[in-house]
């Protein structure tokens, strides 16, 4: 058991190390002077303040130090939780800016991922082998997965938001409201949340429905299914077994798709000006706030790694084969 998780954790640790290294390398080895291009866009009128910022960032990048020392310093401040100071929201620390946005992103992502996975799997299994449903679900599902996240967001914002006027299309809650536990605020929060959630949900849903449909057909043709059918087991039982077994590869699929769905969430947030990490990244790009950009990157990578590990744990819990093999290895 420990061997299995140890191996997984090792890969994740290595991935994090690589991510941090990429993060460190990109500004230093890409052509151009990051500090200058950063300050060129910073909306600082005061010349004195500009000079102070310039000095601050130059020392932060530590461009005068030997490369290896720059690298170690980078890790040092990272491990102290210091991601630098935002240019866009100077002088707020980057970590603070990011922590303010993370709840919104998670609030979109977690329900969208879980619900689309559950609903997509149920629906895909339901559609499989029903001739009429299968022939509709398959193309619709493929079109949904082929839809760019932001485009579906744009269509929903335009149709249900602007034309129909049912849902607001920007922000996380009404401009006039202050965050509180009042009914007005919570209902506004939910209304603003719904469209971005829906567009994320729909694209992901299409993928899971197709995946399950293909997996369950494979399982229904497996030997254990044929055997049950030969012994006259009702379709219900055969399907239940097949569904359960098809869920396992779908769980692996979830781990593989995390990165894509996260990217989708970022794009969707931008469409809806939803104040999560996606919007933060856009602001960071527009303001050439590289510290914020890099901080957001590290947060996302960390989040994806943690989610991957959670899926690994769940997988062991639901697949007896892995469990048995691990026990066999230990004994």
């Amino acid at each position: 058991m420990w061997r299995y998780f140890g191996r997984k954790l090792f890969v994740y640790a290595l991935t994090f190390f690589v991510a941090v290294t990429i993060n460190w390398m990109i500004p230093r080895f890409m052509p151009g002077d990051p500090v200058r291009s950063m300050l060129a866009r910073a909306s600082v009128g005061n010349a004195e303040a500009l000079e102070a910022m310039r000095a601050y960032y130059s020392s932060l990048f530590g461009l005068d130090l030997p490369v290896w020392q720059q690298y170690l310093n980078f890790w040092g401040s990272l491990l102290r939780g210091d991601l630098g100071t935002s240019v866009w929201l100077f002088p707020t620390p980057v970590s603070e800016v990011i922590l303010g946005a993370v709840p919104y992103t998670l609030g979109l992502l977690v329900p969208a991922i879980l619900l689309s996975w559950i609903a997509g799997n149920k629906f895909g299994a339901f559609a499989a082998r029903g001739r009429w449903l299968d022939n509709t679900v398959l193309p619709v599902g493929y079109l949904l997965t082929a839809t760019p996240y932001m485009w579906l967001g744009i269509l929903l914002a335009w149709s249900l938001g602007i034309v129909a006027g049912i849902f607001p299309t920007a922000g996380a809650y009404g401009f006039a409201l202050q965050p509180s536990l009042s009914w007005a605020f919570v209902s506004s929060l939910v209304l603003h949340w719904f469209l971005p959630f829906l567009s994320l949900f729909l694209v992901a849903f299409g993928g899971w429905a197709i995946g399950m449909r293909n997996m369950i057909i494979y399982e229904l043709e497996a030997d254990y299914s044929s055997y049950l059918e030969a012994l006259g087991a009702p379709r219900r039982l055969v399907r239940r077994y097949a569904f359960r077994n098809a869920l396992l590869p779908q769980l692996t699929g979830l781990a593989l798709q995390l990165g894509t769905i996260v990217a989708g969430a970022l794009l969707t947030e931008i469409v809806f000006s939803y104040p999560g990490l996606g919007n933060l990244i856009l602001e960071a790009l527009n303001n050439r706030d590289f510290f914020l950009l890099q901080g957001a990157f590290l947060f996302i990578v960390l989040g994806v790694l943690i989610a991957n590990f959670v899926i690994d744990v769940v997988y062991v819990l639901v697949d007896p084969r892995v469990r048995v093999q691990m026990q066999g290895g230990a004994a």
């Binding site: 030997d223 254990y224 055997y227 077994y241 359960r244 007896p320 084969r321």
Partner: peptide
């Protein structure tokens, strides 16, 4: 392979 791999 006739037995369901994920059931006792």
């Amino acid at each position: 392979s006739a037995l369901n791999p994920t059931r006792r």
